[in-house]
Design a binder for these strands. Structure first.
Lengths: 210, 210, 210, 210
DNA sequence: GATGAATGAGGCTTCATTCAT
DNA sequence: GATGAATGAAGCCTCATTCAT
């Protein structure tokens, strides 16, 4: 009997090869041929396991987003002991080594651009964006005035994405420390700012273990 | 008798058609055929005036970036009477109607992604990014502590790009008012924050005409 | 300015090449490549002028059926002076040199088989079959009892098709004289038979110029 | 312990599945995959038992033609008591439920068309056609003038094939009764015709048990 | 005996570029 | 200057066949 249960193995292998190809050649120049060559398999295998190139692309995006989410869950479980810690965990996750690898950023940006004209990709992207905002708001509402939460969450999310974007362009990979510091500074300053400005409306001091 | 001076006219016409096509169909689905159809000319004309599709693309990016710069120059000339006003002019320019039109954002993002794997596009992009940072730093150093200038400029630039990015995904076009407010708030709060925190190091109050 | 009005020329050229290819290689082995090679053009031209292979195939069938009909119209105009002459003209048309050329019969049979699983081809085929039956019945009802018309028309049509079918298999081309004679004999005998059997019900003697 | 004698079982199973597939999807869309799925076996089994797809196809045609012949032998044994009865038995066999099933007609036509360009199929087809003609002539020469036998046999054979052909196109299956009646009428009329026309040359009245 | 994962040639189609007019 | 017909390389996908298990 031939090898069974190859499906998950091959799918992972092909998704990995897709990331590699998009990193090396770009999304436009990524073809069934480049992917299968990197994976060391024949071209037919992609249609065999994914039905077609498009589905492989979507699976790859899903994988990227899932990884981001998984990492966040882990970080929150470890460090999520206070609102501020939770916020920092979110930042750390978004600038973790995997997420900010050259492979990760290039692919992420390529798919984001592609999603402008591909509804199935856009949907995935939106789900993820919504999740990031939710997580941010959940923690923010405990440390800043309620009417500033939405506004601030939007700003942090934009800051994260903007730093990724700039990192993708300028360097081989994002300068993680710098980017991380900019985001955390923004969070700390926002909290501090509202406490200084409106001490009476100040939130009860959040337990902060640092 | 051959018509003379058709070159600039045709080039402008084709660049405009390229923007239109990228907006309508996306960068991947934009072909020589879609562009020439929108422009109402034959396909051969593109090679004739630009040598090829790739050069037309680069010319289009250069046009977009030039427009951004031109607008900034105008805004700075009109409103650039104080550091804060200058900073606000930069924000306004980046979220001006043209820049944030659906056409603009989609094309901008598409080319940004493309520039990951196209050095000539990347160079253009980097020049522009550098210019934005320079402009921000020039004004910032008059209103916040010198050792915070770089850091803050990076944050503002990232904020601008991040808001564009998120706008490109979620809406037909960026919600200009919201995005603009987030950026300006960030600037105002940063200034105010450093003044509150370090009143002794405060900059001499900038002349502010509002 | 380049050559204009090439469309009808190229379409005819490609349809001719399709007939040639189906004759030489069979329908299954007829590819865009075989057709374009025979036509002496590039492969891309087929999609350019027909949108795709399928449409070229349909156009080819339409051409075959149209040719059959055109020939019939001509024959009827020339020889259609009496019911029997009209019937013979129908037979002659169906066994005319073009229709019974090797190219014609093979292609006709190939498309007929294909139409079992291709509704657009089946529709074309049915229209043509209906036309043949109508023409036969129109003339038959003047020379044989009315209640035998349908039955006899069906038989003649089946005879024509069956002779084609057998001709396609056995010979390079149908043995025209034999096939033609079998059909005409059948017609003559049918008429004579009903007159011998039922002389009282006999139709008024049709004007017969032979 | 290896199962023995699986060969005939598997071969029959695969031939049956081939007929089913050609009926459902057409000859062009019938692949090794569709056949093996219908048979409930793996794709490799076809090459294992038939060496390849082509050989399975030929075996299937051989099976169809053998079935036709077997049925004819049975019918002739039962009803073959007089020349006319034998002729009618031939007709009945050709329009028996199995032969005229949707499955049968589609497959028959598909393979006939295919045999235009496949000598091994064509040979099988010709053997069968020859057998039909022989059977017809054997009986005809006892009931019609000798010099009309060949001609009439050709006509009957063409009539049978033509009715199949038209049945395959228009209906889910051939209208057996109508087709059968047309053929038998033709036979009866031919016999009667020659008796009426040439009573002196008439054959000695054949024993007819109806 | 049987499986089905894997191969890779070949099919159809798209599209940037060329060139005769 | 301008056209658009034509090219043909390259993309994606299908499928008959092979082979390790």
């Amino acid at each position: 009997m031939p090898k069974v249960g190859m499906k998950p193995v091959r799918r992972a292998q092909l998704i990995e090869a897709t990331l590699e190809s998009v990193d090396q050649f770009g999304l436009q120049a990524t073809t069934v041929s480049t992917i299968s060559k990197i994976a060391g398999v024949s071209t037919g295998i992609i249609s065999h396991y994914f039905g077609g190139k498009q589905e492989l692309m979507e699976a790859t995006v899903r994988f990227l987003l899932q990884s981001l989410n998984d990492e966040l869950m882990i970080q929150l479980k470890i460090h999520g002991t206070s609102p501020v810690n939770r916020l920092e965990a979110i930042i750390d996750t978004n600038f973790s080594p995997f997420q900010t690898s050259e492979k990760g950023t290039k692919t992420w940006l390529a798919f984001w651009a592609q999603s402008m004209h591909d509804e199935s990709l856009a949907r995935l992207q939106r789900v993820n964006e919504h999740r990031l905002l939710s997580n941010l708001k959940y923690s923010l509402k405990e440390v800043i005035p309620k009417d500033k939460v939405e506004h601030t969450a939007q700003a942090i999310a934009a800051l994260i994405d903007g730093l990724w974007l700039r990192g993708a362009l300028n360097e081989k990979s994002i300068n993680v420390e710098k980017a991380s510091k900019i985001c955390k500074d923004f969070i700390h300053k926002s909290i501090e700012y509202y406490q200084l400005k409106e001490p009476n409306n100040a939130q009860p001091p959040a337990t902060q273990d640092r």
